[in-house]
Computed example of a mutant assay.
Amino acid sequence: MLRDGTVPKMSSIDRAEPDAAPAAPRPRNHKARVREESIERILDAAEQLFAEFGYHGVTVKDVAKRIGVSSALIHYHFDGKESIYEAIWARKAPISAHNRLAAMRRYAEEAGDNVTVEGALAAWIEPDLNVHIENHDYWAAIGKISAQANSAAGWGAEKMTKYYNPVVLALIDLLKKAMPDCDEATIFWGYHFLSGAMTHNMAQTGRLDELSHGLCTSDDFASIKRHMAKFMAAGFHAICQGPSQGR
């Protein structure tokens, strides 16, 4: 509360989530550890299957077969396929969201009144690229699942909304600060194009490898990091400064 009794307006960055991601509770005994290990095996297998075949291409029986257990064990831990799918998102998407939000907060504090489009985009883009560079095997499948979800109405859009809307709105706030003369609708269109490009990168389809005859590879996240924010910033500037803005 301010001295005059009013409550300051919070930006999306400030209100999106706590400063630190909550740590997962550690199992207290052997039985709890065995249960958690069983759940992790199920989720690891299911994540790979969803990444490969999509949400509608996977059944509980497929997951059970992948790890060599009965479907009854899967149902002991989960209510069904949607329950497994939700658990996959819940264990990794909040980490991605937290990393991005933390990076944007740091950037906003460092930049002060000198926020740039490229700086804002880099703060939003690079945390996900960094984890792929550092531990690609752990993040590859959820990246592909996110790409599928971002292109799917209903079940996919719901997950993107649930886990990423606060972070997206925080980015929009930064972009508004960087481009105060750009109308809000145009900024949202810019984000729409950015989001599609970002999740396409995460899909790692191999299409780029084939097109370039191996000159470029779709899993070269270091090169994506080097080029993407600059490329996207140019697009934002183009649509915000062009004559068609707001039409």
Rank of each mutant, 00 (worst) to 15 (best):
R247C: 13
I224Y: 05
R207A: 15
I39V: 13
T205G: 15
N201P: 00
A238W: 13
N130E: 07
L174K: 01
S12A: 14
N165I: 07
W124V: 00
A87L: 13
V63P: 08
F193V: 04
N29W: 05
Y138K: 10
S218W: 06
A153C: 11
E47K: 11
V168R: 14
V131C: 08
M202F: 10
G80D: 14
V58M: 07
I145R: 09
H136S: 11
F236T: 01
R247W: 14
L175A: 02
R247V: 13
C182S: 05
L169C: 12
V60S: 13
A45H: 05
N150W: 07
L121T: 00
T116C: 04
N165W: 15
A51D: 04
L73N: 02
A90G: 13
Q241A: 08
A123R: 02
H132E: 12
R105Y: 06
M198Q: 01
T59H: 06
R35G: 01
D19H: 10
G246M: 13
L129R: 00
H30Y: 12
D220P: 02
K144Q: 11
W189N: 04
P22Y: 07
V7Q: 11
E37M: 11
R106Y: 13
M10K: 06
P94S: 11
S146C: 03
K162L: 15
Q245H: 10
E110H: 01
N99T: 00
L171P: 04
L43K: 00
W189V: 06
P18M: 05
N201Y: 08
A229F: 04
G214E: 12
E158P: 02
R91E: 13
K31T: 11
G154F: 11
H77A: 04
A20K: 03
T161K: 14
F231L: 14
S11R: 08
S223L: 10
C182E: 13
L194D: 02
D62I: 03
A45K: 01
N135K: 11
H237P: 00
S146E: 10
D137K: 10
A23C: 09
Q148K: 02
G112V: 06
D62C: 02
F193P: 01
G156A: 08
D183N: 13
M104S: 03
H77W: 07
V168E: 15
G112F: 13
I42G: 00
R26T: 06
A233L: 09
I95N: 11
E36Y: 01
Y76V: 00
I187T: 01
Y138H: 14
I88D: 10
A234M: 12
S212V: 00
P27I: 05
M228A: 12
A178E: 08
E36N: 02
E52W: 12
N201T: 03
A64H: 13
L175D: 01
A149N: 14
K65C: 03
S38G: 09
V117H: 04
T59F: 09
A147P: 12
Y55I: 01
F188W: 13
G246V: 08
A197W: 08
H56D: 15
W139S: 07
A24D: 14
D79N: 10
A152V: 06
A147H: 05
D4M: 10
